Amino acid sequence: MRIFLTIYVFAIIAAVSILGFRGSISTKPPLEVFPDMDRQARYKPQAENEFFADGRNDRSVPAGTVARGNYFNQVEVFSEDFEDTRLGDTAFNQGKNADGSLVKKIPVEVSYELIQQGKEKYDIFCSACHGAAGDGNGVTKPYGVLAASYHDARLRSVEDGHIFDVITNGKGLMLPFNDRISPEERWAIVLYVRALQLSQNANVEELTSVQRTELGF
């Protein structure tokens, strides 16, 4: 018993000598048993290295990156003489005018390439629920997840900004995609949705004679 008490006291004295009393203040570096990568090797911002051809640690933003934030903090980030037509454009970034009303028409130049981009993003993010034709017959329907049909009269008559706003912020069971799809890609999806709506609700009288012949009318 005496030997055990001696060893026990010695262990306490050794522990206190090495670790110090709890709550004591010391200017010495702490004893780290597990450093947890606190001092791991890393590149410092704005420093140099020989790995990249340009010798910089800072790298350019990869193409297609979706920016975090709301795009409207340029006043705090940039100098007063900085000019950019997109950062402060609420119609482009939010689908809303400066007074908060929804944008009626797509505020970007419409092109076939933009429709193709919209189809690509629609197939990735939207078709699972809304269906390839936009009629709500997606693969989730048999499981009780009912998505809206874009061919409803209500959605055919809404503003383009409304569809953009739903893609951005979500609605009901639909999650927001503002952190996954850039504003330009969202407008591309809106354009493709309008193309899907037109494909099911087009007026034959609006077609040219060549188009009618090709379609068998």
Rank of each mutant, 00 (worst) to 15 (best):
D54P: 00
D54V: 00
G55L: 01
G55D: 03
R56V: 03
R56N: 14
R56S: 13
N57P: 04
N57C: 15
D58W: 06
D58L: 15
R59Y: 09
V61L: 15
V61Y: 03
V61K: 08
V61S: 09
V61R: 08
A63H: 06
G64C: 07
G64Q: 04
T65I: 03
V66F: 06
V66G: 09
V66N: 10
V66M: 06
A67S: 12
A67W: 06
R68S: 14
R68Q: 11
R68A: 12
N70V: 08
N70L: 08
Y71Q: 10
Y71K: 08
Y71G: 14
F72L: 14
F72W: 04
F72N: 13
N73F: 09
N73M: 13
N73Q: 14
N73Y: 09
Q74V: 11
Q74D: 13
Q74F: 15
V75N: 12
E76H: 10
E76S: 15
E76N: 14
E76W: 05
V77T: 15
V77N: 12
F78C: 15
F78V: 10
F78W: 12
F78D: 09
F78L: 13
S79P: 03
E80K: 15
D81T: 12
E83C: 05
E83G: 03
D84H: 11
D84G: 11
D84S: 13
T85A: 12
T85M: 06
T85N: 12
R86Q: 11
L87N: 10
G88H: 01
G88L: 07
G88K: 02
T90R: 12
T90I: 05
A91G: 01
A91K: 07
F92K: 04
G95R: 01
G95W: 00
K96T: 04
K96E: 10
K96Y: 00
K96R: 15
K96Q: 12
K96H: 02
N97D: 10
N97W: 02
A98F: 03
A98K: 04
A98G: 00
D99L: 02
D99N: 12
D99Y: 00
D99V: 05
D99A: 03
G100V: 09
G100P: 04
G100K: 05
G100D: 05
S101H: 02
S101P: 01
S101Q: 06
L102N: 06
L102Q: 06
L102W: 04
L102F: 13
V103G: 01
V103D: 01
K104T: 09
K105S: 13
K105D: 14
I106R: 03
P107F: 02
P107Q: 05
P107V: 07
P107L: 07
P107W: 02
V108H: 00
V108S: 02
E109Q: 14
E109N: 10
E109G: 07
S111Y: 04
S111T: 15
S111E: 05
S111D: 07
Y112N: 13
E113V: 10
E113P: 02
L114G: 04
L114I: 08
I115E: 13
I115Y: 11
Q116D: 08
Q116K: 11
Q116C: 07
Q116M: 10
Q116S: 10
Q117M: 14
Q117V: 06
